[in-house]
Design a protein around this nucleic acid. Structure first.
Lengths: 210, 210
DNA sequence: GTCTATATCAAGATAGAC
DNA sequence: GTCTATCTTGATATAGAC
């Protein structure tokens, strides 16, 4: 009784808190390990060790490697969108806005290389497990529609033609970003910071001129 | 002596021919297996069986799984460029050209899903093996400069500004294509055929209007 | 709840027969 | 040159101690 009632201020954790903390640490370690070794290449032992636990602890918290991986895939929403929204609201339409946005995208990509690795792992896994592909598609719908909301006003402002729907343009922007991020890892010199902004400017200029 | 000198017209193969045929079959099976299972997930046994040979035959022709994989990575140049060049020469500049080119790209992507899978596998492998990344970058230089040669004339025709160099635009086009192909596999409805052409049109229109 | 020890299995690679 | 048999390793998952 003493421990639980007299010292709640210390970092004593309830059983539930301890468990959820263990889960969080395991998920974090799993993300790092899957990014570094790939899904098939990663071992549960390495994940457990990375989190500072044993294999047993891992299996007591998750069904196994696959469940850990799918849980991660469900979690990884691109939080990038919200920061992009800030940039868009800070500036009026124009070249400066595209350049700033481009820098933001390039910087985030450089900072979170693991995200790109994991996204590729998720994609490959889903390509090989059709049941998971549907989940992945659903998971990407939210950030995608957020992106649509971001480009929508710009399109109206430009007087974009009907074929340049927010959905279509958002898809193109996301694809462009994805592709540039990957190519930048292969050859950074070929994909300088400015290229992100330039490409966006070309794209929206073209849509406005149609 | 009879066998070798009297029946050359039959499918009798010299030792060297037999070996190179075995190698080709193994490489083909390896491509299929790596695409379906991934690098780490593929087993040499499955590759050998897929080619109709034993594990021993595989090791007699290749150093092992990694060598097989790297040999494949070296081979896979995008032969797409040459077909794209045809389309570009068939049409005058304009919307029809972009639309046709878009259809071509979308169709090839749908036909060769394995290519997209393997390209992702190569990228991930290179991301995790820096020594290989340089090779991958070198390997991509040829098709990339071919693409530059393709977009160059169009850029001149458009009176493109200096920041829209052939290199920069080629990078953007390749990234766009890559991204759209991947997204199309996740949700085909979101990436219709026309989008490839539309995106190209927007891009080049924007470059010309700058 | 977490750890240690282990059963079980699959994979990469090799050696020697043919 | 190719096949069969095998060595060796490393991984998933579980069971029982604490």
């Amino acid at each position: 009784m003493n421990d639980e009632s007299d010292e709640p201020a210390r970092q004593r954790l309830t059983r539930a808190e301890a468990k959820s903390r263990t889960r969080a640490l395991l998920l974090e370690a799993a993300a790092k390990t899957f990014a570094r070794k790939g899904y098939a290449g990663a071992s549960v032992e390495e994940i457990a060790e990375g989190a500072g636990f044993s294999i047993g602890a891992l299996y007591s918290n998750f069904g196994g490697k696959e469940e850990l991986f799918l849980e991660l895939a469900a979690t990884y929403n691109s939080s990038l969108i919200s920061r992009a929204a800030e940039v868009l609201h800070e500036h009026e339409a124009g070249d400066a806005r595209a350049a700033d946005l481009g820098r933001l995208l390039a910087d985030s990509a450089d900072r979170d290389v693991d995200v790109a690795l994991l996204r590729s792992e998720f994609w490959l896994y889903a390509m090989r497990n059709p049941a998971v592909m549907e989940t992945l598609a659903a998971r990407l719908r939210e950030p995608r529609s957020a992106l649509e909301g971001l480009v929508g006003p710009t399109l109206e402002q430009l007087g974009a033609p009907p074929e340049a729907s927010a959905k279509a343009v958002a898809t193109v922007v996301a694809a462009l970003f994805d592709g540039l991020v990957r190519q930048r890892q292969i050859d950074p010199a070929q994909v300088p910071d400015e290229l992100f902004g330039l490409a966006l400017r070309w794209l929206f200029t073209g849509i406005g001129a149609a």
